[in-house]
Amino acid sequence: MKKLTWFLFFSIFTLSCLNEPDCYELDNSNVILSFRVLAAGKNLASIADQFPSLGILTPAAEADTIFYNQSYVSNVELPLNPKEEQTTFLFDGGYGDHEIQLGYKRQVQFVSEDCGERYIFADLKILEYDFDSVRVVNPTPTAPASTNIELYRCPRTNLMGIDFTTAVVLDGVTADFSTFIFQPNDTLTTIDLPINKNTASTTFVFNFRGAPSKTLTVSYTRAAKTLNKICGEQTLFSDLAVVATDFGAVELKSDSTQDLPITNFEITK
């Protein structure tokens, strides 16, 4: 009887080896798009970007679907449309809107009663785009997702970095020329401000919540230079200096701008 028990145990053990599918991460329907900044030198040498996203939309999705609303992102994970063989994404960015249309092959596979079906995506291609440059890194989406596409932009050379010694609550910052100022949160300790490449100085007004506004005027030297063939000639800024301010103290930390922005001035309110 003991041997019979072992035989049954062995049989049941073998049966137990029959796989049941794991429903976790069956689809590879998400792609990761990485934002990069074209650096000086040969084409497509780059550094990771912080994209100021006001929202990413896709026209085929449900009306209220917005991804990455009001945040800095270095990469975004976005779903591919299983109903079509292409998906368009519209990027509402702080310094301009962009669009990319991705094409791909898709197949369906039934997995199990518990898991249902899954969609398998492959052969990712870029059909259209208006970024400065793009590149497919991995044409096969994976689960979990990894970087599939890199989106490049030319350096924004006119962004000046401001640090506050203590957190401030801002209703907004305005400049003396027409430009967009990205403010990710009301309460912040750092903000990037664009300076005017057409004039030798720029004045900013900081509107603090529940406190008087303050102004800051900075001067700089401009020089034209080609950093990258794709981007052509760009204006570089140096010799930054404070011309006038009513802040308690403004300390110069770096006298030239960079992309990604570094701290140029530290302000004590």
Binding site: N19, Q107, Q109, F110, I120
Partner: peptide, 19 residues
């Protein structure tokens, strides 16, 4: 259009090996 799911005689087609 559709990846095979269950192959008669084999089992789940998405498994690299199957008992």
């Amino acid at each position: 259009n559709m990846l095979p799911s269950d192959v008669p005689g084999y089992g789940r087609a998405d498994a690299d090996s199957y008992w």
